Simulated scan of single mutants.
Amino acid sequence: MSAYIAPSQIAQRQLEYFNGKHVLVAGEVEDLFPLELVAHCKSVEVFTSNYSYYRQIRNSDKIKSYFGSEFDTDTQADMLLLYWPKAKAEAEYLLAMLMAKLGVNTEIIVVGENRSGVKSIEKMFKEYGPVNKYDSARRCSFYWGTCLNEPKPFYQAEWFKSYTVNLGEQALTIKSLPGVFSHGEFDLGSQLLLETLPPLAGKVLDFGCGAGVLGAFMAKANPGIEIEMCDINAYAITSSQATLAANGVSGHVFASDIYSDTAKDYRFIISNPPFHSGLDTNYNAAESLLGNAPQHLIREGEMIIVANSFLKYPPIIEQAFNNCETLNKTNKFSIYSAKKS
Rank of each mutant, 00 (worst) to 15 (best):
S271F: 06
C230Q: 12
D31T: 04
G184F: 01
C140H: 08
T196G: 13
S337W: 00
K133S: 10
A286N: 06
N284F: 09
A242I: 01
I269M: 05
A91M: 11
L80V: 08
Y134K: 09
E113Y: 10
R55N: 14
L167H: 10
L15Y: 02
R299E: 15
P34A: 05
E302A: 09
S277T: 11
V46A: 09
K220Y: 01
Y259G: 09
G184Y: 02
V204E: 07
Y155D: 10
E325P: 01
K88R: 14
E169N: 15
L24Q: 04
Y93W: 06
E195K: 15
G27T: 07
F67Y: 15
N233Q: 06
L81N: 07
D74G: 05
A234Y: 07
K220H: 05
A216F: 12
V110L: 04
A286C: 13
T146F: 00
T106W: 02
E318W: 00
D135T: 02
N282I: 03
E300F: 11
I225T: 10
A100T: 11
S120I: 00
R139M: 11
A263I: 00
L81T: 07
S60R: 00
I298P: 03
P273E: 11
N166D: 14
G68A: 12
G212N: 04
A201F: 13
Y283M: 14
L24D: 07
T73M: 03
G103A: 12
I109W: 00
N222I: 09
E113V: 00
Q9L: 14
T281Y: 07
S260L: 09
H183V: 04
E36S: 02
E325H: 12
Y83L: 03
N50L: 04
L177K: 10
I335Q: 08
L192W: 01
T243M: 06
N323M: 10
I316C: 10
I10L: 10
K329Y: 04
A263S: 14
G20P: 05
E16Y: 00
Y4A: 09
A285T: 12
K123G: 14
E195W: 01
I335S: 12
K86T: 11
S120F: 07
E318D: 11
K161L: 06
P7T: 08
E325N: 07
S288L: 13
Y163A: 08
L80M: 06
Q241E: 15
N222Y: 08
Q56I: 01
L98V: 08
E185D: 11
P153E: 13
L81Q: 06
I269S: 10
G291M: 01
L194I: 14
N105Y: 07
T243R: 05
A246F: 03
A91Q: 12
K332Y: 03
L192V: 09
Y4L: 15
A201H: 14
N308I: 02
R115D: 15
N247K: 09
K175F: 06
A245P: 02
A89M: 06
N166K: 13
P178A: 10
S136E: 15
A100D: 14
K88S: 13
Q241W: 00
I232E: 13
F47A: 03
K175I: 04
I227G: 05
E318H: 03
I316Q: 11
C147Q: 09
D31R: 01
N19F: 12
A89N: 13
L194S: 08
A245R: 05
Q14L: 03
N222G: 12
L35R: 00
K126S: 13
G251S: 08
